[in-house]
Design a protein around this nucleic acid. Structure first.
Lengths: 217, 217
DNA sequence: CGTAATGTTGACAAGGGTCAAGCTTAGTGG
DNA sequence: CCACTAAGCTTGACCCTTGTCAACATTACG
């Protein structure tokens, strides 16, 4: 597993281009460099100059904002193949951190004219995702939110019922607008009902996807 | 007031181009037609072909989604000058309705290559707005949400402390992820504390903007 | 002027948050 | 290799914010 090799790296550092087989997002169009991050490491911070586009090669990334008192809202998780890091201005409006040992391909930001065509589809998709998320957080209860989250994870992991949850319960809570405790309680209830089986806290088998679908309507 | 003239129209219909002085969003680049809508009228529905971009000339628009059981999440309000209606695919993912008598300029959707450069900035801005909204709904309480909403309205109405709320309490609730009753109670509390003065339910004076800023941090 | 839609307020209930204790797991160092 | 520790997770008890239900007030409109 690539993540194992990566976890031994003490600092993010450039790799050669042929380490990983992730298909490039901008095939043949943009120069890039690869970089590894350990769990919890910052990829960029709010206010940093937005000078690159990023693609996840392996691992997972959380994108978030903070309120003055420390409350955190995770607006997105990114997994293998996902592209992120484009911004409205020339500065980042968010923080990005590696959730676990993570490889990132950084594409030098193309000039404005080319950039538009390249990333508009990605930006529009991100917009739809953000608005879906808004519906979930604004109008669904804890059970519905967690069910939708598990189904989303499943779909993004090739639809396989065995899923990994690389993020902590705190991450899930901050993504769904819930507390750690509520996330934990809902997952326990799903487990008791037999909808999900947890081998470990971060490895689950979705036993009855349809039960979850029925919950989030 | 243009809205008065518009409110007499019985059906949406094309206007000549020189009725309103709103600066076009795509000056000289795209052909357009103008159209009027009455309060509550649908501009487009989920699933409709996304064949145009829209700009508000006067009035206000709500963009929303529905859950199967009728719960509604308003993802955005659009006011004079705002551009909306771009989508990830070739179909609309949302409903758009006029909140009050509203004039809309519909630009024929440009070909893909031109489209990208035109609307990328608008799309990125919408993304930031959606993600801001996510933080508010996911991590702020009722007082903070309503305070942030009032300040947002104020800023978008030229920063003047006299603001209009064209939308109903139900709209505000569905935008902020609250019920009508909670919105009403919070507004009453703000009124009692002297932060806001309501001349009518939909006309307010923000007496102490800083008090509201302090509330939403 | 009368009616329906919209908004306000109150009483009560419940979903989810807070605080606290205990359990599991992974990582570390002897 | 095992024991210790810290971080992460789970569970329980309690409480608070917000939702629900209902009555009433106000406004807009025909």
């Amino acid at each position: 597993m690539l993540a194992q090799a990566a976890s031994q790296l003490s600092h993010p550092h450039a790799l050669t281009h042929d380490v990983v087989a992730t298909p490039p997002a901008f095939e043949g169009t943009l120069p890039y460099t690869d970089c590894c991050y350990r769990a919890g490491e910052e990829i960029y911070a709010l206010g940093d100059r937005a000078s690159a586009l990023y693609q996840v090669e392996f691992g997972a990334v959380r994108i978030f904002r903070l309120l003055a008192d420390g409350r955190r809202q995770i607006s997105a998780f990114h997994f293998v193949g996902d592209v992120f890091g484009f911004e409205a201005g020339d500065r980042h409006n968010f923080f990005a951190e590696a959730i676990c040992a993570t490889g990132i391909r950084a594409y030098r930001r193309p000039v404005e004219s080319e950039l538009a065509r390249e990333i508009l589809p990605v930006a529009l998709e991100a917009l739809v995702r953000a608005q879906d998320h808004l519906l979930i957080i604004g109008r669904q209860n804890a059970d519905e939110r967690v069910a939708a989250f598990l189904l989303d994870l499943m779909e993004r992991q090739d639809g396989l019922t065995r899923i990994e949850l690389p993020m902590s319960r705190a991450d899930i809570g901050d993504y769904l607008g819930l507390t750690i405790e509520t996330v934990s309680r809902v997952l326990s209830r799903f487990r008791q009902k037999g909808h999900v089986h947890f081998e470990r806290a971060r490895n689950a088998e979705i036993v009855h996807p349809d039960a979850l679908r029925a919950i989030c309507e």
